[in-house]
Design a protein around this nucleic acid. Sequence first.
DNA 1: AATGAATGAGTATTCATTCAT
DNA 2: CATGAATGAATACTCATTCAT
Lengths: 184, 184, 184, 184
Amino acid sequence: MTSPRRENRGPSAAAGNRRALLAAAVEVFGEQGFDAPLSAVAKRAGVGQGSLYRHFPDRVALAVAVFEDNVVELEELAALPGTTLDALLDAVTDQLVASVGFVDVVTASVPDGRVEAVAERVGAVLAGALPQAQRAGRFRDDVTAADVVLAIGMVAGLVSKVPIGDRLRTAAAAWALLRRGLRP
Amino acid sequence: MTSPRRENRGPSAAAGNRRALLAAAVEVFGEQGFDAPLSAVAKRAGVGQGSLYRHFPDRVALAVAVFEDNVVELEELAALPGTTLDALLDAVTDQLVASVGFVDVVTASVPDGRVEAVAERVGAVLAGALPQAQRAGRFRDDVTAADVVLAIGMVAGLVSKVPIGDRLRTAAAAWALLRRGLRP
Amino acid sequence: MTSPRRENRGPSAAAGNRRALLAAAVEVFGEQGFDAPLSAVAKRAGVGQGSLYRHFPDRVALAVAVFEDNVVELEELAALPGTTLDALLDAVTDQLVASVGFVDVVTASVPDGRVEAVAERVGAVLAGALPQAQRAGRFRDDVTAADVVLAIGMVAGLVSKVPIGDRLRTAAAAWALLRRGLRP
Amino acid sequence: MTSPRRENRGPSAAAGNRRALLAAAVEVFGEQGFDAPLSAVAKRAGVGQGSLYRHFPDRVALAVAVFEDNVVELEELAALPGTTLDALLDAVTDQLVASVGFVDVVTASVPDGRVEAVAERVGAVLAGALPQAQRAGRFRDDVTAADVVLAIGMVAGLVSKVPIGDRLRTAAAAWALLRRGLRP
DNA sequence: AATGAATGAGTATTCATTCAT
DNA sequence: CATGAATGAATACTCATTCAT
């Protein structure tokens, strides 16, 4: 009668579960796309369905959480003294390649406030680093923060359409082309 | 027993149905993405489910048919005497904006021969127009056909992630950036 | 516009179509079972769906027609001077093996008068041959026509559950067992 | 939004659901044949579609589970001291009459390992009881286990083609005939 | 707070049957 | 009278979400 359930590890597991779910989401969405079954994420995380829903009430919440992790990382990097815009773009690209599935969140048919808020923060980080990069002669003076965001969007869109193994290489090729248009 | 079926318009409706299905697919996939319910396509086309499946045995067949229409258009344009690579890219962009949903086909987890064949043809058209464009000083000499295809991929990826109304504007902005990297 | 339809061969094709449909039905039902798509029968026969329905308004009509062919054959055989019950059973078995799919008609959830009528005729043929077979000492005196019909039903049921290649051999084994119970 | 769903009886319903599904399957397949809609089984069991699929991922799994119940019953019976082969055959016949729909599983176009495994066990049970039955003079010495299995197959095939009400009587008649061929 | 079974709405797909040509 | 496209009901199956334990 008592089927062999996973042991209920109690409240102390909460933080660990949250982390496991995020990691699992990155993997699963990366492999199967953003419309992968949520049950697959829970299973990969070794966590019950219910726990997934407790932590992340819907699919977008899960994606936003990953995004937020990424943005925090970016903000921390930007706060470091010598960080250039190029370094930030490299970091963004790494994140894209690692968590492509989430790019599709941006698409989410119903525009979602939470996503926009996070996107906003990315924009702010880039905008902050642009002037210095222009002064250093690394970016044309007429390039705007919007242009940089646009470029990222293009790389993201491309990367999400390419088989996992080709993503890094493809992103690099894309940036090579784009940077020629951004440099003075 | 005698449910109020749509009137059977007979075999003569076949050609019209096929056309209606393609048009409906462009609309529906454009609005809802490539994973929109096929039943929505059939309904939009004013055609029975069965007819959809007769004409296009699977989702990819439907997408490929739209793609093929586009490619033929492109090939015809390329065959015209004065057609430049820039004109071809403009045409491609128009097609992208009009039938974005189909971009996602390229992604189709299971690589599909039919899709690759069509993509191949697009590449060939562009490659054919590139040398002349370079001689005319419109494209850098070190630009390859692969670069052009890559650029299209980026625009496509971006456009597919943007709400319908913004697509044209977004595509234009993207090309502005990209062309700076392609021009001498 | 004028798609390459099969040429309309006109009324003269009627008889040929009927025959082709019967032959196709035997093949298709034999391979795929009695619930094979009727469209498969039409296609195998090289005949339009509509023609199939003109000749055989429903699935059972098709089966009954095959059965009837078989019964006629049986009746003709029985009418021959020296025909024994054993010979008739051999013939029935051959028919079973050749058109197993039709055995399932007997099952047809809704009992069907047409089927019963044909079954009746088979019973009559066997009943007619039984007395002589008993006088010849080939069948026990307490065997009834119903027993013989029952035996056929058993072989039929068995054969229909066995892969095509094994049918003949299986039928032979079944009869070996059954005949021991029927012989004096 | 809040549609009137069946009350969620929680995980504790699992065992009961499983049992209800098996019982419903026996009934529904018995009445409508092995190709009855699975939704009918779920409805009869008073269980959601999803639960059916959780317990039995496909049609064959459901059938095999019923078969297995039967085989276990048989094995237990065979393990009892005084059980004769005749008693086992009676038990098999009762099972056949009760769960005829499942006989058709054997037919499943795609040969299925799970089915074969269960069939194997039935054969083993019978083979085990045969020698003793022969020593007791109840079965001819030249009868093999394969013959017994064959006989069961014949009864099964026959019973599955007969309306529910006639099944018991028909099975009895069939065995009367067959046993004459099996007894010394 | 965690677990995982239960639920049923939503989709894909097939196929019997009709009917314009 | 033949043809084969059109139609949509029926069915299989998946998965987001809820909830008893």
